[in-house]
Simulated scan of single mutants.
Amino acid sequence: MKKIWLYSVRMYLRLGMFFYFKKVLVHGINNIPKDKPVLLLGNHQNALLDPLLIAVYANRFSFFLTRAAVFKKTLISKILKSLQMLPVYRIRDGWHSLTNNNAIFETCSKLLYQNEAIVIFPEGNHNLERRVRPLSKGFTRIVFDTLEKYPNIDLQLVPIGFNYQDALNFPDSTSLIFGKPIAAKEFISKNRHDNVNALKEAVYSELKKLTTHIPQEHYEDVLNKLKALHVDFLKPKEVNKCIESGFISCNKKETSKVSGLKSIFKLLLIINLIVPYTIWKLAVQSKITELEFVSTFRFVIAITLVPFWVLIISVVLLLNFGWFVG
């Protein structure tokens, strides 16, 4: 039953993403081992959409470390846990709650020993900035605790680069790039402190190759130049090369020749979905305080209110004009 539930949710989310995204590109999916324990480590730009993309497009079901605050309500907690989400506690949840992470990390080690996959966003927070932020130590603790408890485990770490063309806009396009797996055993030595730093640096270095990385210094200036050059942010390797070359070696994104027609279709879509669109604009979007959540709430509206609205319209048409029109 659990597999049926997970497959059903995945299929529904995939259908939602088919309509939500203009384009979803997935590269390097075969870099995820199917028969080994795996930690999937991604940069974190776009709140809930990042883990949802992994859940939909990865080649195996994963467990997700999720901030504990969303588990407070009993019903929501049961739903999240049924979707293989595990609560992880942060300082903002209270110092006393941090000890709960011991049990969570132990659970992660057991899951990895059972050849499961776990998703972690090692930056520790989300931000729309196009750069990889310094990594926290949380994922390294899971790695080395697991290696100590199960010395023979062949734990693999797969870095993931999330790339969005324009996360605040709709429809958006995205590319998911799975990097080459890193064998955790390669970072074992006598000094755990050195191991932690070496592992963090290795993952950080790989993530910078899989997504656009604009150094924090002169960030806005560099970003504006890239936008002016119309680079394709779905191709981070090319964008990073553009930055490194001092904006000399830059490839422009292919522009659509039917932009006017697309605007007409978008207007027709809004008219057809006027009720959920109005709810989104007036009741939801205006109350979002963190830009990272704009796409998340828009997608939630798209997969909840929109289907209900379309169903209502279909029933009304059916009752008044017959089955064919409905």
Rank of each mutant, 00 (worst) to 15 (best):
S189C: 08
K190F: 05
K190P: 00
K190R: 10
N191H: 06
R192H: 13
R192S: 09
R192N: 07
R192P: 04
H193A: 10
H193M: 06
D194R: 03
D194P: 00
D194I: 02
D194G: 00
N195H: 12
N195G: 15
V196K: 10
V196Q: 09
V196E: 13
N197L: 14
N197K: 14
N197T: 12
N197I: 14
A198G: 03
L199E: 00
K200Q: 14
K200T: 06
K200R: 14
K200P: 01
K200E: 10
K200L: 11
K200H: 11
E201D: 06
A202Y: 05
V203W: 03
Y204K: 04
E206F: 04
E206N: 15
K208F: 05
K209F: 02
K209L: 08
L210K: 06
L210F: 01
L210N: 04
L210E: 01
T211Y: 00
T212R: 05
T212K: 05
T212M: 09
T212E: 00
T212P: 07
H213R: 00
I214Y: 04
I214T: 04
P215H: 11
P215E: 10
P215S: 03
P215Y: 05
Q216F: 15
Q216R: 13
Q216H: 15
Q216M: 14
E217V: 11
H218K: 12
H218A: 09
H218I: 02
Y219N: 12
E220W: 10
V222W: 00
L223Q: 09
N224I: 13
N224L: 15
N224P: 04
N224M: 13
K225G: 07
K225V: 09
L226D: 01
L226C: 04
K227S: 06
A228N: 06
A228Y: 03
L229W: 09
L229M: 14
L229D: 08
L229Y: 12
H230E: 15
V231C: 06
V231L: 05
V231W: 00
D232N: 14
D232R: 04
D232K: 03
D232V: 01
D232I: 01
F233N: 00
L234T: 06
K235W: 07
K235N: 13
P236V: 06
P236M: 08
K237I: 15
K237Y: 14
E238V: 07
E238H: 12
E238C: 08
V239E: 00
V239A: 02
K241Y: 10
C242N: 02
I243V: 12
I243L: 09
E244Q: 13
E244H: 06
E244A: 13
E244M: 08
S245R: 08
S245H: 09
S245I: 11
G246F: 12
G246T: 09
F247Q: 11
F247I: 06
I248C: 09
S249P: 02
S249M: 09
S249Q: 14
C250G: 12
C250D: 13
C250M: 14
K252Y: 08
K253G: 06
E254L: 15
E254Q: 14
E254W: 11
E254F: 12
T255A: 11
T255W: 02
T255Q: 10
K257F: 05
V258Q: 15
